[in-house]
């Protein structure tokens, strides 16, 4: 019957494109406005649960690739490098013995003075199941989530030093923004001079130490550790060492490039610092979903360095770390 024949409806593709563009812009707006517990973030967490097995499979496939890469690097190392490493190992052993002595002495004196041990941190071990699947974010995914007691904002370490901070958590996996990501910032100080600053990531994958004035003597090889200011990372975690220092007389701060102690490509396992609770302060704003406007969060630094003492630069460093923490964690 002619009446029953349905005429195909031709949908103008231009109109469809406009609709999709509007939907995308609406999604973007919601994403930027909502907090870490908003509907889109929740959907992404759900997708994270679904794709976690695929990521684990990818990590399994990638293991031989990484092993081959490491083996190739080791094979091409010069014999002189091996000798240098052996010598360095002996020096480190001697240093470790001395440090153990100092640690015990410190413990005794701290007990006498009734000081709290700021380095007695509790941690949960986790395995890296995936690296960034896009170019624009330096992230890793680990195989522990809220079921294991992890929450947004917790610091993540390798055996050598600081790696990053948990940005989102699903029941069985978490994503970690690395300190080398350009949206990361860590309040720190130079171990030798105790000068405070802020270590930031960059698009070129380097770490920069900012807000260190010209009056501070900085030498290549100086160790950099977290200062605990800003309340995002606990005090005393090694970050890296100074690789190079550069400044002009007209500058207000030195340009310091930091060599990180941890290269994420070489690690399979990480530690998530979960306690002691008095020292680790997962960003409460991010945890409660209050870091609603990520863009605004970058500039909203109020209250981050409350009660902190120190120079103006260090104050800025603390505030920026707190902002970076909430900014990153809110993603």
């Amino acid at each position: 019957m002619a009446l029953n024949q349905k005429k195909p409806i031709k949908v103008p593709s231009g109109l469809v494109l406009v609709v999709f563009c509007l939907i995308s812009i609406a999604l973007l707006t919601v994403w930027v406005r909502e907090g870490a517990t908003g509907p889109l973030h929740t959907v992404r967490s759900g997708v994270g649960v679904l794709v976690a097995p695929l990521e684990e499979f990818g990590a399994f496939l990638g293991t031989p690739l990484r092993a081959a890469s490491n083996a190739a690097n080791n094979m091409t190392a010069e014999p002189q490098t091996l000798e240098e490493l052996q010598a360095q190992n002996e020096e480190l052993l001697a240093a470790a013995i001395r440090l153990e002595e100092y640690r015990q002495e410190n413990e005794r004196l701290s007990q006498l003075l009734e000081l709290r041990d700021v380095y007695g941190l509790e941690s949960v071990g986790a395995r890296i199941i995936s690296r960034s699947a896009d170019t624009w974010n330096q992230m890793i995914t680990i195989n522990k989530g809220s079921v294991a007691g992890l929450s947004v904002g917790m610091p993540v370490m390798s055996p050598n030093g600081l790696l990053g901070q948990i940005e989102s958590v699903s029941p069985y996996s978490s994503t970690v923004r690395l300190i080398t990501d350009e949206r990361s910032g860590v309040a720190c100080f130079l171990q030798a001079s105790r000068a405070e600053g802020l270590v930031t990531g960059s698009v070129e994958g380097l770490l920069y130490l900012e807000f260190v004035g010209l009056d501070v003597e900085v030498r290549p090889g100086d160790a950099i550790i977290t200062s605990g200011a800003g309340g995002v990372y606990p005090k005393g975690i090694p970050i890296g060492e100074v690789a190079s220092v550069d400044f002009l007389s007209s500058d207000v701060a030195q340009t310091i490039i930091v060599r990180p102690l941890t290269r994420v490509a070489t690690f399979e396992e990480v530690l998530v610092l979960t306690g002691n609770e008095s020292e680790i302060h997962p960003n409460p704003a991010a945890a409660q979903g209050a870091a609603s406007d990520e863009g605004a969060a970058a500039s909203d630094t109020s209250g981050a360095g409350e009660g902190a003492e120190g120079s103006e630069g260090a104050e800025g460093a603390r505030e920026t770390e707190a902002a970076a923490g909430s900014n990153g964690a809110g993603n």
Partner: peptide, 30 residues
């Protein structure tokens, strides 16, 4: 038409499985 639909949906999937803002790549791929 099918290409635009595929671009939008795959962009949305890309947004959800990576760490970028949701809606960004769906817009671009469409």
């Amino acid at each position: 038409l099918p290409a635009t639909v595929a671009g939008f949906l795959l962009g949305l999937v890309f947004d959800l499985v990576t760490a970028g803002p949701v809606g960004g790549m769906s817009l671009i791929m469409a």
